[in-house]
Design a protein around this nucleic acid. Structure first.
Ligand SMILES: Nc1ncnc2c1ncn2[C@@H]1O[C@H](COP(=O)(O)OP(=O)(O)OP(=O)(O)O)[C@@H](O)[C@H]1O
Length: 632
DNA sequence: GAGGCGTGGATTTTT
DNA sequence: TCCACGCCTC
């Protein structure tokens, strides 16, 4: 706090009332939040468990906690409730959801799973379903516009309740319902959280707003910080008006940027200026640095990736940076692939040896959890924990094969539906028409569930998972399925990585572990291992972070602005996204694009992002493209 | 009931 | 390019 300017100081020490900090990128908003936590505890003697600080991503929450811990010590820092809205609601519901008739062991359904479920129930919920895609059904249930839509929505929520399951939106919605219907529950939390603060407030949605208002109602101390120019989650329901119209007792603006060089700030301003309807914020910097951001145009996507990697090697050497000072940013997750390949193949000097590969981390990478073998294991765990989770059950009811064919399954679910039973009940009382193979399979499956539940209750988590893998003969099953040994090895490694994840997750509680997997996308790198890695992430997930050197890649029309944004009419949001990305860089910023990129396997010519034309030429150092002479 | 093969559709962004 | 799903045969 010593280095804070007067406005920051004011914000960090104004503890009472409703305070809005509205300020541009890199002006120290998050720093203020951190110092405010410290000030409350150290100077005002507020108990850390009276503080609720909500962030947008788990990564941001983690980062904030470690910054607070540096000053307050780990013990006090851990007592602060510091998480995303979703994690906060999840933990709260674990304790309180019984009021609403769910069990604490509730599952969390992914969007995909919800869509699939909608397809299954639609014929029973609607008059006619032909011509309705699963996306259309999803839209109907989420934002009902007619009686029919309402019917589908109700049917879905009844089904979800029967499955004892929530989706991501439900975590917030159900918490709000709880607060509305059980005032005595709300009052406990209102009482407890005397100071509430929210980061990235420009990206909160209506429900988050209502939750915050309800929680802050008693003490009235609500502190929100944000930047309307960085609102990039409208597609998820965030509403910029919530910050612009936030009723406040005090408004504080921060105008000094401490993060970036003047050259970086200049292009950020040129880009965002082109948006109409802005609430003109000024950003100054006191830094002196004559360097300009760079721009290069590569012939192909592969050339672009190679060039980025070479630049990283060169810059690291020249400026003595760590790997983790570098970030490669891109619009969509799939683009990470190309850079991963080049990072893996890069040769570099370490001391006087040549080594292959640059350490990197794909931030928020969900690839691991997308793997079928991992999803299967998770489904087993979910089923043991919450036997009503029929999405999980249906996924693995015949995997590995146990004789329950699609035909048999149809008979089972038909009976289930006509008798209004739980799936497990039907599996215990099978229809006679089933083949004997299916009957035997179902009986074995029921035994497995019972044994599994017992095992997971009594044994340490990793042991129990090993038991599961052994019992279902997963290794043999994978070997048989994958004639290609390499593929088998790869999948088996993922299975083992999952066991490792459980071992290092720091919990033996199945529910807690599952929560971590679903909400946090726990990663083995999170749990330890080498931290110093080049960071690969989307423009979206870079929000709130900063890096010494940033590479903004794939800056092509159709990618940025994304072609889909054209139909949606969200060009302004795409421009804000570019602004967010630019302002992540502290010292070195390189923009790049490729003239040809593969689309569905075929090379296709590209055009430069239209946003590049918003930057005056004199603000950039435009590099001719030298085909990188690799020493491979 | 299992497994192999061929076709057509897919990719935005996240908790 | 890849994967999911449907159709076919054993
Ligand atoms: N008063 C200050 N003096 C020097 N450096 C500061 C000061 N305040 C903040 N900083 C530094 O400026 C950088 C940006 O701060 P911070 O991340 O808090 O900004 P922010 O407003 O939250 O940014 P964004 O909106 O982009 O998330 C950080 O590296 C921080 O340490």
């Amino acid at each position: 706090m010593r280095r804070f300017n007067p406005q920051q100081l004011e914000a960090a020490t104004a503890t009472e009332g409703r305070i809005l900090v509205l300020a541009g990128a890199g002006s120290g908003k998050t720093s203020v939040l951190v110092e405010r936590c410290i000030h409350l505890v150290e100077t005002c003697n507020i108990s850390p468990d009276a503080i609720l600080a909500l962030t947008f991503t788990n990564k941001a929450a983690g980062e904030m906690r470690s910054r607070v811990a540096r000053k307050l010590g780990k013990e006090k820092a851990e007592k602060i409730t510091l998480s995303t809205f979703h994690s906060f609601c999840y933990s709260l519901l674990k304790n309180e959801i019984h009021h609403l008739g769910y069990a604490a062991s509730f599952s969390i359904y992914q969007e995909r799973e919800l869509k699939r479920l909608l397809e299954q129930i639609a014929p029973y919920a609607l008059e006619k379903t032909e011509g309705l895609s699963k996306d259309a059904l999803y839209e109907m249930a989420k934002r009902p516009k007619s009686r029919e839509d309402e019917k589908l929505k109700r049917f879905l929520s009844e089904t979800m309740k029967a499955h004892n399951a929530l989706d991501f939106d439900d975590l917030l919605e159900v918490t709000l319902q709880l607060f509305e219907n059980f005032p005595h529950v709300l009052s406990v939390y209102q009482q407890r959280y005397r100071y509430i603060m929210i980061d990235e407030y420009q990206d909160t949605n209506r429900i988050q707003y209502e939750l915050a208002e309800k929680l802050a109602h008693r003490h009235g101390n609500l502190f929100v910080v944000g930047d309307d120019d960085q609102s990039i989650y409208a597609f998820r329901g965030s509403d910029i008006r919530l910050i612009l119209e936030f009723p406040h007792t005090s408004l504080i603006k921060l105008e000094q940027n401490y993060r970036s060089t003047p050259g970086i700030l200049a292009i950020a301003n040129h880009v965002i200026e082109k948006n109409p309807n802005r609430h003109g914020k000024t950003l100054r910097t006191a830094q002196i640095d004559p360097n300009l951001p760079h721009l290069f145009v590569a012939p192909t996507e592969e050339d672009e990736a190679k060039a980025v990697v070479l630049r990283i090697l060169k810059l690291k050497e020249e400026k003595c940076l760590d790997w983790s000072d570098f970030a490669i940013l891109y619009r969509s997750n799939t683009l990470a692939r190309i850079f991963e390949v080049e990072l893996l193949n890069a040769h570099r000097k370490e001391g006087d040896r040549f080594v292959r590969g640059i350490p990197y981390e794909v931030v928020q990478g969900t690839e691991f959890y997308e793997r079928a073998e991992v999803k299967d294991l998770l489904a087993y765990l979910r089923m043991f924990h919450n036997p009503c989770d029929e999405t999980a059950i249906l996924r693995i009811i015949n995997y590995p094969r146990r004789g329950i064919s699609p035909d048999a399954l149809k008979k089972i679910t038909e009976r289930q539906r006509s008798h209004h039973e739980r799936l497990l009940h039907t599996l215990r009382h099978l229809p006679d028409s089933l083949s004997s193979a299916a009957k035997a399979g179902a009986a074995g499956f029921i035994r497995l569930i019972e044994e599994g539940q017992n095992t997971f209750k009594t044994r340490p988590l990793a042991d129990a998972i090993r038991w599961l893998i052994h019992t279902i003969e997963l290794q043999e099953c994978l070997r048989q399925e994958n004639k290609d040994d390499k593929m088998f090895q790869f999948k088996w490694q993922n299975v083992q990585a999952f066991v490792e994840l459980a071992k290092t997750s720091g919990t033996n509680d199945l529910g807690e572990f599952l929560g971590g997997c679903m909400l946090d996308r726990l990663h083995k790198q999170n749990a330890g291992g080498e931290r110093d890695r080049v960071q690969l992430l989307t423009f979206h997930s870079a929000k709130g972070l900063e890096f010494s050197a940033c590479f903004l890649t794939c800056l092509e029309d159709e990618l940025l602005p994304h072609e889909k944004s054209r139909e949606e009419g969200t060009l302004e949001e795409e421009r804000r996204l570019f602004y967010v990305a630019i302002t992540r860089a502290k010292r070195y910023l390189t923009l790049s694009m490729a003239q040809k990129r593969k689309k569905y396997g075929a090379m296709k010519a590209t055009n430069p992002s239209r946003f590049l034309f918003d930057i005056p030429k004199h603000c950039l150092e435009i590099e001719p493209f030298d085909r990188p002479h690799t020493f491979l």
